[in-house]
Design a protein around this nucleic acid. Structure first.
Lengths: 180, 180
DNA sequence: GGAGTATCCTAGCGATCGTTATTAAACTAT
DNA sequence: ATAGTTTAATAACGATCGCTAGGATACTCC
């Protein structure tokens, strides 16, 4: 998972995976099938672990708390010190050769699921819950996911964690408050 | 440029470039050097053409006009109908194998230049120019760039142009206005 | 018109890609 | 102890990678 995270799907060679997993190539193929199946397993593990920052934000009671939790935990995930920088689901297979088109679509589908998931959570929110006036829940959800993905891109560029937290705070500052 | 744009640096094989350019491999190598030099030339061409959406926004007089121009022209660039989806500078080499590390750093540097460029433009802006109160220009610049990069990721996922324009509008709605 | 020069493609270089057939080793069970 | 079965590694498969030598072609200039 860490190797795929750092180098992406096509950027990771089987030789690196054998070294990282401590298994020989035939053992990997016997256990997982092929490289694509192994990658999907790695993504599942990622989503259940470091990539679960969206789930953590869903049970927040207000828009502002949700946004705050989402953005800051996302920053911790994509700019963690003990893990590769960026997000596996974003940089795993963003632009790849035609032979990896299935993997690209798989990750794209996963990213879209995050948008709908977040939109479903925002929809019941009213202005009393801090939802900015005149905002479409699905557009706001897509905005937040886009921002998280942008933070992931910048983390992959090497932007320090503090700068990304400042971006999160800036976004929260921009959001209209309930009682101002 | 279009081929690199669609498939990324490592995802593009020389065979595709010979087909797209109508030149044989030796001609390409004689004219450009190696694949990396050709990629940099393609990026330069991209930055001077479809990727110049940031430059277009810099001469706007107010924060709101700048943001509006930046986001909507960025959406047009990353979700254009006659070009590949996404942004070459984002998806060209986000997570790659170690042998392409130089290309990855090159694009990361380019992305960071966009942040400093935008921050320099926002810095002289005061509250009278629509700068949200209590915002740090460099953090706001990084926020906007992150959002653009996130829009590029979603465009690469196949999200339709209208949805991305709605995200841009949502962000503008969230920004505090001068006279409200 | 013909020698010299520049241009460009065909063919193939070594290396590495993902993948697998073959073989050696270790464990289980009679 | 030994036969049978599972496990895993060595070695190599065809394909493709970026890249380039060698040769055929066209163009220039005396």
């Amino acid at each position: 998972m860490l190797t795929f995270w750092a180098r992406g799907y096509e950027g990771t060679a089987m030789a690196e995976l054998t070294a990282a997993m401590g298994m020989s190539a035939p053992s990997i193929y016997a256990a997982f099938g092929d490289k694509e199946a192994l990658f999907r397993k790695a993504v599942e593990r990622y989503m259940a672990g470091p990539g679960a920052y969206l789930q953590a934000a869903l049970d927040q009671p207000t828009t502002e708390a949700l946004v705050r939790t989402l953005l800051h935990s996302a920053v911790e995930a994509v700019a963690g010190e003990s893990t590769p920088h960026g997000c596996l689901v974003v940089q795993g297979a963003l632009a790849v050769s035609p032979r990896s088109a299935e993997v690209r679509k798989y990750l794209a589908r996963l990213r879209e699921e995050g948008v709908t998931c977040l939109a479903d959570r925002l929809r019941p929110f009213s202005a009393a819950d801090g939802l900015p006036s005149g905002s479409d829940p699905s557009a706001l959800a897509r905005l937040l996911v886009a921002l998280v993905q942008g933070l992931a891109v910048q983390a992959a560029s090497g932007v320090p964690r503090e700068a990304l937290h400042a971006v999160a705070d800036q976004m929260i500052t921009c959001l209209p408050r309930r009682a101002d």
